[in-house]
Write a protein that binds this DNA or RNA. Structure first.
Length: 466
RNA sequence: GGUGCCAUCGCCAAGUGGUAAGGCCGUAGCCUGCAAAGCUACUAUCCCCAGUUCAAAUCUGGGUGGCACCUCCA
């Protein structure tokens, strides 16, 4: 297994901290709004990573947090006159449902900020005691960046004097403009939590460090976790700050490997609220099967920026369709787990920093050759066994082809329409038997009007939604 | 302004020194009553310039053109 470490900026052989085991922590969503394609991309990338690690025989513990304490959540609750928990529960639940629709498995551990406050307090206290943090007379607690000689080494940033001057005005109580809040005193009567440092709310960066320490870290390892992942934008300041907190409050560095996934742009533009072009997952799921979105968002390398275009999405559907068509050809045959060269190569490609493009090339070559042999030698038993085994492996590692192939092609069709199509198809088959091609073609046109396509095969006639 | 990334066929996209994967689209053909699906064949020398090397899309230098982060963000 090779992983590109976005801090060391090179592909490195993956060596776990503890033999045979991997701990993975990924920054999860702040639950104040619907998940967009960017959340989906990140979740998919690390879902794939866990599958590949497992396929390599590693025992993976995957944690992804839910940030349920945040100013934006409070703002939304006030705006909608709802309880905070009502908001966070709602968006946490929809996040889970939508992730499940695109085949993302739940992490092993999903800590919430609200349930990890004690771990945060402990970390703050340790940092204060060791001189890495200080409380202001306003009741805020800041991390003292000057106290950490390794600060900014993670994101390879240099302190810029002019830059620092500009930010001074905003926070006069800080010793240093780069210092960031771990505990923010809140006195406006909105939601606060009791803490040894007074009433207030925790800083965002603190959350992840504390949760990692609580749920994943081992006392005797040089790093708290094997792999820390997240979106590319998180490297600075979020991960830089997390790393500083962990480094200064414990005996280990935060992560042995850092992985950052590229951004999703919409038609060449960054997705953002101000541009009004946020593409929500729930809207995409109305148009496309979740697996098509999964395929599409995973079809290019995870580190590249991803430019979402609906034309490309329909190409992704065409490619996924091919997997399902082969599944249809082999439908009903017994499952098995034959060892094949294809599987070895597929895992090899994915184990190389998740080279999905190479993996897809292997898959499409496998599909072509399987179809070719099935075309010419329909009773090739060994080939069928191997192909079924290959398809099962694609399902397991990539999560492509997990559905019933017939149902997959009926996405979004209601039962009435399906019944009508079935009736028309029966009439058409009858006309065909009588060699009344004029009538059968007329019926086909009628069926096509439902937005489906027809396929006459040796096993009968099938329809697929276009 | 600082830091970093990228530039491969009409489109999407692999490939980090050894002579350009794969997909979409297109063309021709096989199959089919006709289609659809499937299969076969064909389609690029890698932004520009200079250099290193027996050998470069891949390394170095210089251009040009995109993009990201530096503020909450996956």
């Amino acid at each position: 297994m090779f992983i590109y470490d976005s801090v060391q900026k090179e592909k490195r052989k993956f060596i776990p901290l503890r033999e045979g085991k991997v701990s993975l922590y990924v920054c999860g969503p702040t639950v104040y709004d619907d998940a967009h394609l960017g959340h989906a991309k990140s979740a998919l990338v690390f879902d794939l990573l866990t599958r590949v690690l497992k396929a390599n025989g590693l025992d993976v513990t995957y944690a992804r947090n839910i940030t349920d304490i945040d100013d934006k959540i409070i703002k939304k609750a006030i705006a909608q006159n709802k309880d905070i928990k009502e908001i966070t529960d709602y968006y946490t639940d929809s996040f889970h449902k939508e992730m499940s629709a695109i085949g993302v498995s739940r992490p092993d551990i999903e800590p919430k900020a609200t349930e990890s406050l004690n771990a945060m307090f402990e970390m703050i206290q340790k940092l204060i005691d060791s001189g890495h943090a200080y409380a202001t007379k306003d009741g805020d607690v800041y991390f003292d960046t000057a106290s950490d000689s390794a600060y900014l080494t993670l994101s390879s940033r240099v302190q810029d004097d002019e830059d620092r001057q500009e930010r001074v005005a905003s926070s006069s109580m800080k010793k240093n403009p780069a210092d960031f809040a771990m505990w923010k005193s809140v006195k406006d009567g909105s939601l606060t939590y009791e803490s040894p440092f007074g009433l207030g709310r925790p800083g965002w960066h603190l959350e992840c460090s504390a949760m990692i320490e609580k749920h994943l870290a081992q006392a005797d390892t040089a790093f708290a976790v094997d792999i820390h992942g997240g979106g590319a934008d998180l490297l600075f300041p979020h991960h830089e700050n997390e790393a500083a907190q962990t480094r200064c409050s414990s005996k280990h560095e935060l992560a042995s490997y850092w992985m950052h996934n590229g951004f999703v742009n919409i038609n060449g533009e960054k997705m953002s609220k101000s541009l009004g072009n946020s593409f929500f997952l729930k809207d995409a799921l109305k148009e496309y099967d979740g697996e098509v979105l999964r395929f599409y968002l995973l079809s290019t390398h995870y580190r590249s920026n991803f430019n979402f275009k609906s034309e490309d999405l329909s190409i992704a559907k065409k490619r996924l369709d091919k997997i399902y068509r082969l599944k249809k050809r082999l439908f009903g045959l017994a499952q098995n787990s034959e060892a094949t060269e294809f599987k070895t190569k597929l895992l090899e490609a994915l184990s190389d920093d998740m080279n999905v493009s190479s993996a897809l090339a292997l898959i499409e070559e496998m599909l072509s050759s399987a179809n070719e042999i099935l075309d010419t030698a329909g009773k090739h038993k060994l080939l069928k066994r191997e192909t079924i085994s290959n398809l099962a492996y694609i399902e397991e590692i990539l999560g492509f082809g997990v559905k019933n192939p017939f149902e997959y092609f009926q996405f979004g069709m209601d039962q009435d329409t399906k019944d009508t199509i079935a009736t028309l198809m029966e009439k058409r088959s009858e006309a065909k038997r009588e060699k009344n091609f004029e009538e059968s073609d007329r019926l086909r046109d009628e069926i096509l009007a439902f937005g489906v396509t027809l396929m006459d095969t040796p096993a009968g006639t099938f329809w697929e939604k276009v």
